[in-house]
Design a protein around this nucleic acid. Structure first.
Lengths: 343, 343
DNA sequence: CTGAAAGCGCTTACAG
DNA sequence: CTGAAAGCGCTTACAG
């Protein structure tokens, strides 16, 4: 934790009997330096193992080539992939990424935002925590000259750039697919309704039912079933109903879908014959369960790239969209055995 | 990408007819400020929406509460978990994390290191890329006053703090377990031998054979089988040998173990009766394949925490260890059906 | 307890 | 093409 004297442009200047400004110009490849001195300066810089101090440089230039990212968890497939996508682009641009995890806690999210605004990052990219209630911590970010981009889980009311999956469309497709496979009583495992994504997925479910003239059966909608354990618990209740469902749309995640599959298997219920199952996110394991689970791919790496490109003005928000500051990433329904009743 | 005028301590000072130094002292909770002015300053700071400029503060203080992390890929379970663990600790300490991914490319890794040294981070945490050959880019980091901590995949020769899994011990346990289950011809899928971790895993395999007086059969050792596809390919070759193995230790990853399982299933070979399989890493899916796969848990989140604690002097390198700058994280053999031949 | 000044390491108009 | 000076926004000895 100790620090040490490092060579500065003054050290180079002194050694060459030059002024620091010339050294700076040379190292920044400004035009106003003679070839001879430029070479000398580079040579000496190398000799003295000079490294620019970005802190000083950024302070002077009045900007900070750094972007902050706040996610609920780094080690969750979806977020890890989005971050990887963002990094891919920002790296090319010479920008750095500061990563914070809110651990699904709003209080901690507020602190993360504070750290990042203190750092004077040029952009904050955020997906809000599960206990999201209030967007006031995001409100004066822009006034500080910091760009704000929300993705996936967003504060709807806030007028910022947003990159979203079309959750409603994807859910509608998934449920429609199940209806077309002949499932009649499709249950929904829903997530916390304070999060836009879970509201949208529910909306897609309702829209699909409506479109096909199927009445909603309230007892088939299970609240807060967004982990494997909660998914399993909800499933047990559902399958013990006098009139149980013949399919379950685990709109919260593939993990809850896995909970569904495990309970069904345990109870000797055949999938997909007696029970159809659809998850959400296309986690790696959905491909290798037996049967393999139908799910929705969110194109998360691409999503990350789009977010970063948006910042660098290399992607544009949707034109003609009701909310013109939004980019919709089209998710993809991945049909597998767990919903394929008709061969 | 535009920036805007932000309030500084001078704005606060001017408004209160104070000197900037008093404002700075107050905001930093230094003792030498009267309660009255302190309160005034905090109130005004809030009114003017003041945010400290960490760039200036760090430049002046001569340090940077930032730690850089370089990993091959962010969106790989093991690394995502290690990063999550690191972040957990650094967050508590008020440090920021700058994340870079080398994408398994040495050239890009060198660039990442340069960015981080320019940033004057106080510590660099790295796991080297797959095409690691040369550690010269890591050599003069310390001389710049930057702490260097290597983990998992490390440059052996370099005298730095290291946090490692005891790959050799874990592999030896795994192979020993297979031998005790009655497997006689145990094949090894090995990874690139320029990486320490794969050399160690192989060493563990060899040690276990030796300990039990089993001769090494060279044709059962398959090089470079470190993806699902390569694992599958190697398995096909192995199982088509005149004298095929009765077990396969996929020391490279659970993904290659999955490749093994898929080929075995396809060829109608029973696991674990005719073929034992052991993977490495305890990926989530190993629990839900059928049969579930025996594997090794690397305690990756804990590993991340240990790395960060090491930096903050809250963890100590092993005493009495041949290399006293190393912390060994004890991995854990997770025994599941895929190797349980004796019930 | 408060102020005035110097300096962290750079960049950038302004002269010449 | 090169130099001298000012300033980015802070912090911190040094006075008083």
């Amino acid at each position: 934790m100790k620090s040490q004297k490092r060579t500065t442009i003054y050290d180079i200047a002194k050694k060459l009997n030059l002024n620091a400004s010339s050294v700076s110009r040379a190292l920044n490849n400004s035009s106003n330096v003679s070839e001879a001195t430029r070479e000398l300066i580079f040579k000496t810089a190398k000799e003295l193992n000079y490294k620019q101090n970005s802190l000083a440089s950024n302070l002077r230039k009045g900007h900070n080539q750094t972007i902050g990212v706040v996610v609920p968890r780094i080690n969750q497939n979806f977020f890890a992939n989005v971050i990887a996508g963002i990094e891919e682009i920002t790296y090319q641009k010479g920008y750095n990424l500061i990563i914070c995890q809110s651990n699904e806690s709003h209080a901690r999210e507020v602190k993360c935002i504070n750290t990042l605004t203190n750092q004077h990052v040029s952009c904050i990219i955020i997906s809000v925590s599960a206990d999201f209630e209030d967007d006031s911590h995001l409100k004066n970010i822009k006034e500080q000259g910091i760009q704000l981009i929300q993705f996936d889980r967003v504060a709807d009311q806030l007028d910022t750039l947003k990159v979203l999956n079309d959750n409603e469309q994807a859910s509608m497709e998934a449920v429609t697919h199940m209806i077309e496979q002949g499932y009649q009583r499709i249950a929904l495992l829903e997530g916390p309704q304070n999060l836009n994504i879970f509201r949208q997925r529910k909306a897609g479910y309702l829209a699909a039912l409506k479109k096909h003239g199927i009445a909603l059966i309230p007892e088939l909608v299970m609240e807060n079933a967004w982990t494997k354990e909660l998914g399993a618990e909800a499933t047990r209740k559902l399958l013990n109903l006098p009139n149980p469902p013949d399919a379950i749309f685990a709109s919260t995640s593939d993990f809850s879908a896995l909970g569904v599959l495990e309970i069904a298997t345990k109870m000797g219920i055949r999938v997909p014959e007696d029970l159809g199952i659809c998850g959400y996110s296309n986690e790696a394991f959905t491909e290798i369960t037996s049967p393999a689970i139908t799910t929705i791919d969110q194109h998360s790496v691409q999503m990350g790239k789009t977010i970063a490109k948006l910042y660098f003005d290399e992607a544009q928000p949707n034109e003609g969209n009701p909310s013109a500051n939004t980019v919709n990433i089209q998710p993809e329904l991945i049909i597998r055995e767990s919903t394929l009743r008709k061969k």
